[in-house]
């Protein structure tokens, strides 16, 4: 197998993902969505369940257009703009944030709440409270938006409007931001490898 869905991973471990995995899946998923946007293939669709998120052997993370959602919602990426399931980038980000939170909350009771580190809670809060761009925004648009920097010159994202903003927030979580791509890919690669190891072990026992 070359990929596992986040749902399979959660069910196999029967426990929530850890925080670093949450950061990594957010970063890698937004990275692939952004790349799709640049190639003009973005079929923007809300993430409906963990089954829609696919973690690949090489550490890539993609949204599975047809994963679990009913065939009526599925349509080819080439479908026209008017098709009902298309939605804005911010809606995809919001739905991703919700699913990632649910993966962090997996197995907890309704009245229990997991204590998240403030930066991760802030990331999810930002993702689930996105702000509509003023129309100039489209995916892959590399506008030099005026950005805020903190005292040690680190770029601070205050509102999330694009996949790029999510990636910036995830990168800011690391000691060396420039290492974000390698680091988060390695985390997802390890998540896939460890899960496959467990999967094979359990299959052998069965």
């Amino acid at each position: 197998r070359n990929a596992l869905s986040l749902e399979e991973i959660l069910k196999l471990y029967n426990q929530p993902i850890n925080e670093e995995q949450a950061w990594a899946v957010c970063y890698q998923c937004c990275g692939s969505l952004r790349a799709q946007g640049r190639r003009g293939e973005s079929s923007k669709r809300r993430v409906e369940s963990p089954a829609d998120i696919r973690i690949w052997r090489d550490g890539a993370v993609t949204l599975d257009a047809g994963g679990g959602s009913s065939s009526s919602a599925r349509s080819s990426p080439r479908a026209g703009k008017s098709e009902h399931s298309r939605c804005r980038e911010t809606e995809v980000i919001e739905s991703l944030g919700i699913i990632i939170y649910k993966a962090l909350d997996y197995g907890l009771k309704e009245n229990e709440e997991r204590e998240l580190s403030p930066p991760l809670e802030q990331l999810i809060d930002h993702m689930t409270n996105t702000v509509e761009a003023d129309g100039s925004q489209d995916e892959g648009y590399e506008a030099l938006d005026e950005c805020v920097v903190d005292e040690n010159d680190k770029e601070v994202v205050e509102v999330v409007q694009s996949y790029r903003d999510v990636m910036k927030l995830c990168a800011a979580h690391l000691p060396t931001q420039s290492d974000a791509a390698n680091h988060y890919q390695a985390v997802c690669r390890a998540l896939f490898a460890e899960t496959m190891e467990l999967y094979t072990f359990l299959a052998r026992i069965k």
């Binding site: 929530p16 939170y101 709440e113």
Partner: peptide
């Protein structure tokens, strides 16, 4: 159940879990 690797607290009305469950 083994010791979990994270802390669990009582769900709070103004917490992120409540906000997300309303979405």
């Amino acid at each position: 159940k083994g010791k979990s690797l994270y802390n669990i607290k009582q769900k709070h009305d103004s917490g992120i879990k409540a906000k997300i469950s309303m979405k």
